[in-house]
Simulated assay, not measured.
Amino acid sequence: MSTYRRTTTALLLASSVLALLMGCSDGKRHWNGKDISGVMPDLAFTLRDVDGQTVQPDDTAGQVRVLFFGYTSCPDVCPTTLAYLHKVIEKMPADTRDDITALFVSVDPRRDTPERLGRYVAHFDSHIVGLTGPEDALRELAKRYRTTFGYGDPDSDGNYAVSHSSAIYVFDGKGRIRLLLKQDMPQQQAADDLAQLVRQDLS
């Protein structure tokens, strides 16, 4: 076989393989976190921010929203998760960071006053917003995303623990559920996911 024919055959074979691979592709984007698009409802709540003002998802429309439940007296999961989110946001490209809002929803409204919640989130990152509200509204929101929370018995000083989910929910700029992240995920992988969502919204 001539060199020309061998080259032509190789090119045809390569083209066929490429076409086969393209045909097998489902067209979906690659995500490092768990893709839960369409599995849960769109983002919806009516809560209060650290200034005591009523907040709804429309107030941050167009932003990629990251939702995490917790409370300021949490000894471990909450501070480590918020520190993780700070580092993730830092690793995002500079031109995408301002299109991210992290919503830290306190499920301990008895202790987490707006002032206390404001001081707490300010310690971590300016992109993190503290929210809380009446217990019934918080339970409704938790149930909406298939989780719950509970209060332990108070000690002699009145202190108590709050059990809650450690899941990190990610919604796109239209408020649609997209991803579920965990803080044991490499920070750069989470940053890549958030940046991809931002750019997808802007495209």
Results as ranks from 00 to 15, higher is better:
G62A: 13
R119G: 13
L47C: 01
G52R: 08
F69C: 01
P57A: 01
T72A: 02
P75D: 08
R48T: 04
M40R: 15
L103M: 14
H127C: 03
C74E: 01
L117R: 01
S73N: 13
E115K: 07
Q53P: 03
P57S: 00
I128E: 12
E90H: 05
V66K: 00
R111A: 07
C74G: 08
A44R: 05
R97A: 14
S106W: 03
T60Q: 08
I100V: 13
F104Y: 12
R116Q: 12
I89S: 15
V50G: 04
D112K: 11
F124I: 03
G118N: 13
D51S: 05
V55M: 07
F69E: 02
C74K: 07
H123T: 14
S106I: 13
T46S: 04
G130Q: 13
P109F: 11
T113V: 07
T60M: 14
M92V: 12
D108E: 05
V129G: 04
L43Y: 07
A102N: 03
Y84C: 10
S106F: 08
D76H: 12
D49A: 00
D125F: 05
T72S: 12
D76R: 09
A44I: 02
F68Y: 11
V105D: 02
A83Y: 07
P41K: 01
V64T: 02
D99Y: 10
L103V: 06
D99P: 08
G62K: 07
K87G: 04
A61I: 10
Y120C: 13
D95A: 04
D98S: 06
D99E: 10
G130K: 02
R111Y: 08
T72Q: 02
H123K: 15
P109D: 07
Q56N: 14
T81S: 09
T60G: 06
Q56T: 06
L47I: 01
A83P: 00
F104C: 04
V77N: 08
Q56K: 09
Y84E: 02
H123I: 09
I100A: 03
D59T: 06
E90K: 14
T101Y: 12
R110E: 12
V64L: 02
G62V: 02
D95L: 15
S106N: 12
L85F: 07
V88N: 13
D58L: 11
L103W: 00
D112G: 14
D76C: 10
P134I: 15
A44T: 06
F45A: 02
T96C: 10
L103P: 00
P41A: 05
V105F: 03
D108S: 03
P41V: 09
M40T: 13
T54S: 03
L82Y: 06
L82T: 09
F45H: 05
V77Y: 12
I128S: 11
G52N: 11
F124E: 04
D125A: 09
T81K: 08
I128Y: 09
P114G: 01
S126R: 08
A102C: 07
H123C: 15
P75F: 05
Y71R: 03
P79T: 14
P75K: 08
I100K: 01
D99H: 10
V66M: 06
A44H: 15
V88H: 11
I89H: 06
E115Y: 05
L103R: 01
A102D: 05
V105E: 08
D51E: 13
D99V: 12
F45K: 00
C74S: 10
E115G: 15
P109Q: 10
R110M: 15
L47W: 00
A61F: 10
L117D: 01
L47F: 01
